[in-house]
Design a protein around this nucleic acid. Structure first.
Lengths: 360, 360
DNA sequence: CTGAAAGCGCTTACAG
DNA sequence: CTGAAAGCGCTTACAG
């Protein structure tokens, strides 16, 4: 009934009538063991339902079979998608996954890394994007140096400013720029952006790329048409409502994340605005559901599962001395029905219902 | 650069000029340690960036700080939601989460449990529903007995036939029955069901509950109006298309999972059928997005995150001798626009477009 | 309160 | 090929 009832290697050895060294070798297949002894050991292990104590193995071997994965929130479809790829890859390589959700708290990210270092994981995957925060970067850099010293590999998804780790980089900047050009191509000149917390590098990059491409076409977004919100469905809903409250002058709104776009779509509907009739709407990521919305959302598609597999692959490759490896993953602009040419009719017609109505 | 450069407790002890026993006690706060010595140890640990080797601790203490979580697929919104709750709870209790995705392979579920037993986790959470498979149940029962013998707690979400483990039971049967009654209340008498793989207990329960309630009203579903598909968006799309191909005679379709309903909604649209004009559609789970679809989906809401927290809480409570604990979580019928009274017009008008058109 | 020592369950040079 | 022994890094009775 208690912990001491565990079957140990010694039990197996005794049962098989050999030394624990031989039992270990037979079980691991590391060294040649006389066939009949091996058989006896295997049979004994089977009979006793022996499972090696992973901690003892890790201690004796000075290495474990685990990798650590840190994301912002597994229940967010973006991370759920990446995590799916990571889990597949882990299963293929017989690795255990220790998962940590930071809920976007930089301090928690730091403490997870140190915890995983304590677990002596083979590698740590940082799948959330970095934070634009000097102090945090410094602390993280120190922590990662300790990991490196311990032989723990590090690989990241997205840009982690000042960390120089091997990374899979979704082309947030270029993707947003390409999206902007596509929207310009539809005839839009007045844009608004729903953006996330500016400490998150992904947010910065997408906004920068979008504005850059617009600037090349001589188009500028009015400051009051850039609204910040939480990276969530409700955050998008609130941000879009805020935009409407400020007076929506744009013909096209870019939500820097699909999940925000989902909320924005609902908000526009709640305010009596049709998409794309009154306003076009585009997102980023191509999470599973956006193609099934009405209208389906224009977005920049990222191969989330593949990103997960690739960051794992990167982490499993031995470190290269000196500089860090970077793999870029392009985003693909997917034009769907949520964006169309801007309506030719006068502004008045696009004005929202009075704000006294309750949004959903 | 290599694994041997780890800072150990001995290094800290030496640096602080005390024995490793004292260093250990100071760090853990288990026993009174003279204040000045404690200070010196803490300072030394800080200076050396010491992180205890979790494996050595687990070995010496004969217990670890980890819990194992096994689900079918983290990237599925249902499990993503539950996992979110589990992660929160884990963070609150300072537990590490080892996560395994089985991709609905019973063998993999078994091997994960044994692997986690090897990790000597405190508890294992089975968040996927069980399999209706005798052989598997037998093997799992043995495996769980070994866990129990090792002091590893087990808790599950959903019904695991023949396993008698502490469980959080979403009321699949009652929820589906309540949904059926609500749909009957709208005036429907002709139903179809899109169901999942019948080895999954959740599938069995939802279908049974739905049919049961219909039977009480004297309504029966024609066998050819029950279509099986994969538990995924595309599985739902294919199942709905198959239903249309067979000749959709129902005025209302129940998809046993929201994720299937999402696919079904798209399929109906692709076939030129409007929801709920031509056919009403309902799902189950209330995953985040279904309220934002057009039309928003009627469903049975399950508090996914809370289910996650509760299964963790259950696992953390000590085992009760003898019988297993069961916590029921009711589902709430949420009527949305995807279901309405059946159209009064003749069948002809609801007939689909010819099947030669390509579905999306 | 503190330290020397044994022990947790494995692996792996080191001798045979 | 096999076994006795040391060692992985910690914790914890056991004596002081």
């Amino acid at each position: 009934m208690d912990k001491w009832s565990q079957v140990t290697l010694n039990d197996v050895a005794r049962e098989a009538g050999v030394s624990s060294a031989t039992a270990s070798r037979a079980l691991n297949g590391t060294t040649r063991v006389r066939a009949d002894l091996r058989e006896r050991v295997l049979a004994a292990a089977e009979r006793l339902a022996y499972t090696p104590n992973a901690h003892a193995q890790a201690l004796a071997r000075a290495s474990s079979q685990a990798v650590g994965v840190i994301c912002h929130d597994v229940s967010d479809p973006y991370f759920a998608g990446i995590s799916g790829g990571v889990m597949r890859a882990a299963a293929e390589h017989d690795l255990h996954v220790i998962m940590g959700s930071t809920f976007r708290d930089p301090a928690r990210e730091l403490s997870y890394v140190s915890m995983m270092r304590g677990q002596r994981v083979r590698a740590i995957l940082l799948t959330g994007s970095g934070f634009e925060d000097r102090a945090w970067q410094g602390a993280m850099r120190e922590e990662l140096a300790r990991c490196a010293a311990a032989g723990t590999r590090i690989a990241a998804v997205s840009r982690h400013h000042g960390l120089r780790v091997d990374s899979v980089l979704p082309e947030n900047r270029a993707g947003a720029a390409a999206l902007a050009r596509a929207l310009l191509g539809l005839g839009h000149r007045d844009f608004a952006v729903l953006t996330g917390p500016p400490v998150i590098t992904t947010v910065v990059d997408r906004l920068a790329g979008f504005q850059e491409a617009l600037a090349e076409a001589g188009v500028r977004i009015a400051p009051d048409q850039i609204v910040e919100g939480a990276f969530s469905r409700d955050g998008g809903h609130r941000a879009a409502s805020e935009l409407v409250a400020r007076g929506l002058r744009a013909t096209c709104v870019f939500a820097s994340t699909d999940i925000m776009a989902v909320g924005a779509l609902a908000a526009f509907r709640d305010h009596g605005l049709t998409v794309p009739g009154d306003v076009s709407l585009a997102g980023f990521d191509d999470i599973p559901v956006v193609g099934d919305l009405t209208p389906p959302l224009t977005t920049v598609a990222l191969p989330l599962e593949e990103i997960g597999r690739r960051v794992m692959a990167l982490a499993l490759r031995p470190a290269t001395a000196g500089r860090s490896r970077v793999e870029r993953v392009p985003g693909t602009v997917v034009l769907r029905a949520s964006t169309s040419a801007p309506a030719a009719r006068p502004r008045r017609e696009r004005s929202p219902r009075p704000l006294t109505e309750t949004p959903g």
